[in-house]
Amino acid sequence: MWRALLHRTISLVAALAVASVVIFVMLQAVPGDPAAFMLGLNAQPDTVAALRAELGLEGSLPARYLDWIGGMLTGDFGTSYTYRVPVAELVADRIGVSAPLALYALGLTLLVAIPAGLLAASRRGGVADWGVMGATQLGLAVPNFWFAMLLVLVFAVSLGWVSAGGFPGWSDPVAAIGALTLPAIALALPQASILARVLRSALLDTLDADYIRTARAKGLSRRATVLRHALRNAAIPVLTILGLQFSFLLAGAIIIENVFFLPGLGRLIFQGITQRDLVVVQSVTMLLVFAVIAVTFAVELAYTLADPRLRRR
């Protein structure tokens, strides 16, 4: 088990290294002169030169890369060109919106998907199964940003229950959670649909397994068989999907934060693009990729624990 853990850790670090190189090359090497790129076509040569100095573009590419990575590792993410504040500060600020939003959406996803998947699998071919399959089929087809617009139309415009966008800050937790509720629902809809379907099919697959027949033959009821034998084996594919969903959740958040004007990481990176603030884009992208890789790592660890065959004695 420790060897497997070491192996996974090494590949985690390698993936991060390669990802950082890809991001760096795309943003620093491909555009030619990043300073000129950031300032646009009409920039004065001396402004460009000043920015080059400010960004430390004098050094060679490898030196600049190491500089950037060294900074990332010590918490120095550079200084935003447009906001004139350290990127780390911006990130710290914005993460207070994005992380709760992602967790809120994940919570809703699990809350809906697990009972729905269990219900559909245990009533295979029945009315409940058809209902869950039909609803999730629709949930998969609805773009989350459009769903968000419909939610705004109904709950903010027609009913006036919540505000249509913006974020009041955490000084008023009730209002803050209220502001995150519609975005979280919009984010959770497609994710819950996927997860419910995966859970259903994973359960049905394990219910066909020989050991399920063994359990039935020794006197377990259908219900006990599902709960004691099928669920834990079905957890392995479900965990894998859950890990992948984190990546979709982040991508979805970038869009949803824009629909609701939430000051999160997604909106930060998006503003960075429109303002050509490469420092912000580069560091925030790296952070997002780090988050995805770290979650994948955690998921692999989780199912190593769930499956004794992967645990080496």
Binding site: S11, A15, V18, A19, V22, I23, M26, L27, V30, P31, L244, S247, F248, L250, A251, I254, I255, I269, F270, I273, R276, L278, V281, T285, L288, V289, V292, I293, T296
Partner: peptide, 19 residues
């Protein structure tokens, strides 16, 4: 494959369009 999966799809799009 794992590496591409590590990038949220929209982040790839953002990187490409950024440049």
């Amino acid at each position: 494959n794992d590496l591409i999966f590590a990038f949220p799809s929209l982040v790839i799009a953002i990187l490409i369009t950024a440049v």
